[in-house]
Design a protein around this nucleic acid. Structure first.
Lengths: 93, 93
DNA sequence: TTTATATTTGACCTTTAAAGGACAAGACCA
DNA sequence: TGGTCTTGTCCTTTAAAGGTCAAATATAAA
């Protein structure tokens, strides 16, 4: 989910991976992998990307976090039950 | 959550931490920490514990997984949004 | 009030796995 | 061809897992 979103945002403003890579000071391969969900996106990278793409970080964080949650529960038989329990806990607080 | 549950189950059948530790072949300190949520419970330990406590593993896994999810989203501002997104994704599949 | 047993806590250690990343080679346009 | 992007392999560093041990604390019972 996040990877696709990052790609859309980048393309929407016509930036090349090369340019994004320069801004984050990493390899273009790294950007490519982020956009393909093959590498996790760190929070500091997320911040830089949101700034670069002219979007609020708050719009990206839920997606970013949801991705991490999904990765944690993927292939788990009781993912729905677990997520529902977790959601209840978080809401009641 | 899981720690408390493990403690209840153990006490319900009158086992000492020492005895559980012997079964899992670990230190009693380790059991104590599991019951205080200070150490994660591995899946293989979870399996042994459920057997020892005479409960189905399926009853423990959702709690176990929910705990891991909660730990992942704790201190996060958008935990509710993220969990709801994740839940939708998982349900639609 | 000792004493023994059960549990807890903190400090420490080793091993494993993930994060974070580079590089080269190949694919894909155009 | 030239530039963009992708993919696989490799590497190093960091952090978590998975423990142990000793000492401190509680608890019950003699």
């Amino acid at each position: 989910m996040l990877g696709e979103k990052l790609r859309e945002l980048r393309e929407a403003i016509g930036l090349l991976q090369r340019e994004v890579a320069a801004d984050l000071q990493v390899d273009t391969a790294y950007i490519s992998k982020m956009e393909h969900n093959e590498k996790p996106v760190s929070r500091t990278h997320l911040k830089k990307l949101s700034k670069l793409y002219g979007i609020s970080e708050s719009d990206l964080i839920p997606i970013w976090l949801a991705d991490k949650v999904l990765q944690l529960v993927e292939n788990e038989k009781f993912s729905v039950e677990a997520l529902e329990m977790a959601l209840n806990k978080v809401k009641q607080k």
